[in-house]
Computed example of a mutant assay.
Amino acid sequence: MPKESKTDMWRAVLSKFEIATYEHPRVKKWVFGKISQFWKNWKCKSKKTHYDPFHTTRERLQYHPDRVDPVQWVLLIEFWGTRDGMERSKRNAENRAMQTMNHTAGTKSFARIREEDRARNPDGQAPDRMEMFRLTHTCWDGQLVDQASEDALDFG
């Protein structure tokens, strides 16, 4: 990403959020990591809803997302149709299929879950690693989310 774009994004973040330690490199790194994550997720959703359902370039161009500049949409369509784009998509799908252990935290951060559990705990202690695992891999009905999670807790 061009340095100018990063500078513009950082200014936008600072204009919307009060970040007391904005010069701290870890804060900036975290912010850009979140931006990267959101960008990746948004591209994935856009591809699922505006690229995959259609079979021709004409259809894909006609039903592009409103938030995407048409010129940039053409570039995305071209990339997703290349050998490199298709191989990357296939490799990512295969990697995702190999994932055996899921968590139940949803969009809630582990840090937030930890603090909420600390607040519920009478002695004010934060949960240890095993308790955090249990908290983030158990469904609302008390069942572990998958066999791999159950095996991991049995091992621990």
Rank of each mutant, 00 (worst) to 15 (best):
residue 118 R to E: 11
residue 114 R to A: 00
residue 126 A to G: 04
residue 67 R to V: 14
residue 87 E to N: 09
residue 59 E to V: 05
residue 100 T to G: 10
residue 93 A to I: 03
residue 121 N to W: 03
residue 127 P to E: 06
residue 129 R to T: 09
residue 114 R to D: 01
residue 49 T to C: 04
residue 68 V to D: 10
residue 96 R to S: 11
residue 86 M to T: 06
residue 59 E to G: 02
residue 60 R to C: 00
residue 53 P to D: 07
residue 106 G to R: 03
residue 86 M to S: 04
residue 113 I to M: 06
residue 99 Q to Y: 09
residue 66 D to M: 10
residue 97 A to S: 10
residue 130 M to A: 03
residue 75 L to Q: 15
residue 124 G to T: 04
residue 64 H to P: 01
residue 103 H to K: 03
residue 64 H to W: 07
residue 124 G to F: 14
residue 93 A to Q: 13
residue 102 N to W: 15
residue 112 R to Q: 11
residue 87 E to K: 06
residue 89 S to Y: 09
residue 102 N to L: 12
residue 139 C to K: 15
residue 115 E to R: 05
residue 70 P to N: 08
residue 72 Q to L: 14
residue 59 E to Q: 14
residue 91 R to H: 10
residue 76 L to V: 13
residue 77 I to F: 09
residue 63 Y to Q: 14
residue 99 Q to A: 12
residue 78 E to I: 09
residue 120 R to D: 13
residue 93 A to G: 08
residue 109 S to M: 03
residue 104 T to W: 01
residue 85 G to P: 08
residue 94 E to W: 04
residue 82 T to H: 14
residue 49 T to I: 10
residue 47 K to T: 11
residue 124 G to R: 12
residue 80 W to A: 06
residue 47 K to F: 09
residue 134 R to I: 01
residue 63 Y to D: 10
residue 70 P to H: 08
residue 107 T to V: 02
residue 83 R to G: 05
residue 79 F to Q: 08
residue 140 W to T: 14
residue 113 I to L: 06
residue 77 I to L: 13
residue 103 H to G: 02
residue 115 E to P: 00
residue 125 Q to P: 00
residue 127 P to M: 09
residue 111 A to Y: 11
residue 117 D to H: 13
residue 126 A to M: 05
residue 102 N to D: 12
residue 138 T to I: 05
residue 122 P to V: 05
residue 59 E to R: 08
residue 123 D to L: 13
residue 132 M to V: 03
residue 106 G to Q: 02
residue 113 I to C: 02
residue 123 D to S: 13
residue 77 I to T: 11
residue 65 P to I: 05
residue 106 G to L: 04
residue 58 R to G: 00
residue 69 D to C: 13
residue 125 Q to E: 12
residue 111 A to E: 14
residue 80 W to Q: 06
residue 111 A to L: 04
residue 81 G to A: 15
residue 99 Q to V: 05
residue 47 K to E: 04
residue 50 H to V: 07
residue 98 M to N: 07
residue 89 S to L: 08
residue 70 P to E: 07
residue 67 R to C: 14
residue 121 N to L: 02
residue 126 A to P: 01
residue 112 R to G: 07
residue 59 E to F: 04
residue 118 R to V: 01
residue 119 A to W: 03
residue 68 V to H: 06
residue 93 A to D: 11
residue 95 N to S: 08
residue 50 H to E: 04
residue 91 R to N: 06
residue 122 P to F: 07
residue 76 L to A: 12
residue 92 N to R: 07
residue 117 D to Y: 08
residue 139 C to Q: 12
residue 69 D to L: 13
residue 69 D to R: 14
residue 46 S to W: 00
residue 63 Y to E: 14
residue 68 V to M: 11
residue 114 R to W: 03
residue 138 T to D: 06
residue 100 T to M: 09
residue 85 G to A: 13
residue 65 P to H: 10
residue 48 K to F: 05
residue 90 K to A: 05
residue 57 T to V: 04
residue 67 R to Q: 15
residue 73 W to R: 04
residue 114 R to Q: 06
residue 65 P to E: 09
residue 135 L to R: 02
residue 54 F to H: 04
residue 117 D to L: 09
residue 82 T to L: 11
residue 50 H to N: 11
residue 66 D to V: 08
residue 74 V to R: 12
residue 94 E to D: 12
